[in-house]
């Protein structure tokens, strides 16, 4: 299943996230007008999410590990925003 969402990150920018998953994540693409230093970190995060169980708890674990990375500087994008977007891809958001 392939899902695409646009979420407003509490850090200020709109994130456009595409997730292809089927029990586990096949691919995640994170796009938007945010800043990340070093830039390659976002590519690595996408790579780290590949193969992870399509489940909020597992995804959160990967994100938390990513955000504890030394020297990472993010502007306009946050753990909360990313998690919201990825959760929305899984269809676990409150539909009401």
């Amino acid at each position: 299943m392939r899902k695409k969402v646009i979420v407003e990150d509490p850090a200020g920018k709109f994130l456009k996230i595409t997730m292809d998953f089927n029990g586990e994540i096949n691919e995640v693409v994170i796009t938007g007008d945010f800043f990340a230093h070093p830039e390659e970190a976002i590519d690595e995060l996408q790579e780290n999410l590949r193969g992870v169980k399509a489940d909020e708890k597992e995804i959160r674990k990967v994100l938390e590990e990513f955000f504890s990375r030394e020297g990472l500087r993010l502007y306009g994008i946050s753990l909360e925003g990313l998690l919201n977007g990825l959760k929305e891809c899984l269809g676990e958001e409150d539909e009401n």
Partner: peptide
């Protein structure tokens, strides 16, 4: 476009 943006989008 910014490094993290999608050109087609």
């Amino acid at each position: 476009i910014g490094y993290f943006q999608s050109l087609v989008e």
